[in-house]
Structures are given as structure tokens and as C-alpha cells.
Write a protein that binds this DNA or RNA. Structure first.
Lengths: 136, 136
DNA sequence: CAGTATCCCGACGGATACTG
DNA sequence: CAGTATCCGTCGGGATACTG
């Protein structure tokens, strides 16, 4: 599918006003979304943008993440081939995590999403507050 | 995408190899991610791309979503100002949901993400399977 | 330093039934 | 048609303690 699938979806939707995304595509969209849309993946990818980071560095740069979730998320990302883990056999053990090319290809989207969040954060906040006020 | 703030984040990250995303930005990035990264929001936005849809249409076009989650997600999206809800006082009640301009601005990102998912789905699958095999 | 192991709670979300 | 109400299971994920 390469660069065609994305356009394929758009194209399909453009065929008719009610053209749904095919059910099978829904399935793997959800799979990717589950991985990418979890609480920490995107944040870790965003933070890894600027270069390799060690376990402790990641923990420091992503405030609020627990050791458990850091380990878990890193392993998932690694298994999906989005990051690589490199352990150096040294006396104080050192492990570095790096984005793979695949991970870097996602990073552009992450950056865009973060940019969108930054741009519209205030607007969304306002809408949310306004809805809460009207609802009360 | 972001016209100003996004560049700001990128710029900040570009300052130094270890420059983290500021903690306060982390906070609202997480807020946006929580909303956008949940199980159904992106799918609903994707489906609403092609125009207004009614409750039942949405339920049909997003296979697997329960009435409960459809209602809940729609209300959240509405409160955030990403979609509008229009009820027509007719004898068979009719309600239409539409993307707001804000929602449409997100939709571009959604499409990109879905395109990415489509493009790299096979690759990720392969990586995942390979990791599972090696691990056993 | 770089993790793993265990406990545990809250929410996310599905199924079902009911309503204006 | 367009929802709401209720019940209930699953599991994401935090806190804490321990290990190579």
C-alpha cells in the first residue's frame, strides 16, 4: 500500500457522503491507535526525538511516568520496531534508547499533533469550561 | 497544523540534545492526548470527515462502538468544540453531528496518522511477530 | 543504574434494559 | 430514532518493594 493507503482512505470517503472506512482497515487503525494512543508512547517518542536517552533520563524527561509504565512502554515500542535498546556492558550499567527510522517517521506526526495541541489548547479549554458552565 | 506554537516546541527541542519538553506543556499535551487518544474519538472524527451524520449512521459506520461509548464520546467531542450537535424537532427525531472548523483542523492530522498506520501496519506486524518469536 | 515483581484501585468500556 | 440508566468485568497504570 505504501503511500497509497492514506490517500485510499480519503478517496474512499470522498466517493460518497456515507462511505465508511472499510471494516478491515478500521481493525488495524484501532491496533495502531491502541499502541500510539496509550498514555505514554507518544510522549516517549517525542522526547526521544533529540537523540538517544538512558532509562533514567527518560524517567526525568517524562514527568509522572512510573518505572513500571516506562519499562512496559519501552518494551512495546521496541517490539514494534519504533525504538532500539542498546545495553553497554559496563560497571555502572548503561542502556540507551533510540528511535528507529520507523520511529522517526512517526515522529513527524507526533510533532504535528503536539503542535496542534499547543495551538488549540486554549480554545479547547475555553470550550470545555463554557460547556461546563452552561451545563450547570 | 500548528502555525505558531508547534514551531515553538520544535524550536525548544532543537535548543539542546537533552532539552525536554517543558513540564507545563507536557501537562496539556497529555490532556489532548487523553481526549484524542481514547478508543473512539479519532475514529468518529475520521468518519465525520465526509459530512454530517446521524446517531445511527455513526453507530453503523464505526463498527463495534456501543451506544454508551458513542453517546459519551460524542458529548466529550462536543464539549471540546470539535463537533456540533444539531437536533431537528421532527416527529421521528433527527440529530446530526458535524465537525467544527476546530474539528476539521484535527482531521488533517487524523488522516495523516491513519495514513501512517496504513503504510506501516505490515512492517509493525512483522516486527511484533519477530519479537514474539525471538522471545519464546 | 536499570530494571522486575506484586498489590491494588479506578476507569474504560461492553451488554442489557429502559425512555422521550 | 436517539438516546439514558445500570450492572459489571477487564485492565491500564500507580505505589511500593526488591534485584542483578
Amino acid at each position: 500500500m505504501g503511500t497509497t493507503s492514506g490517500a485510499g482512505i480519503v478517496g474512499a470517503a470522498a466517493i460518497g457522503p456515507c462511505a465508511a472506512i472499510p471494516a478491515d482497515q478500521m481493525a488495524f487503525i484501532r491496533q495502531i491507535l491502541d499502541r500510539v494512543g496509550d498514555k505514554w508512547s507518544l510522549l516517549l517518542i517525542a522526547v526521544l526525538e533529540s537523540g538517544p536517552l538512558r532509562y533514567t533520563d527518560l524517567q526525568r524527561q517524562v514527568p509522572g511516568i512510573s518505572q513500571r509504565m516506562l519499562s512496559l512502554t519501552l518494551r512495546q515500542l521496541q517490539q514494534d520496531g519504533l525504538i532500539t535498546r542498546t545495553a553497554y556492558a559496563e560497571v555502572p550499567p548503561r542502556v540507551e534508547y533510540t528511535l528507529t527510522p520507523l520511529g522517526r517517521s512517526l515522529h513527524g506526526i507526533v510533532t504535528t499533533l503536539i503542535g496542534w495541541a499547543a495551538d488549540h489548547h486554549d480554545e479547547i479549554r475555553a470550550n470545555r469550561d463554557r460547556a461546563a458552565t452552561l451545563g450547570s
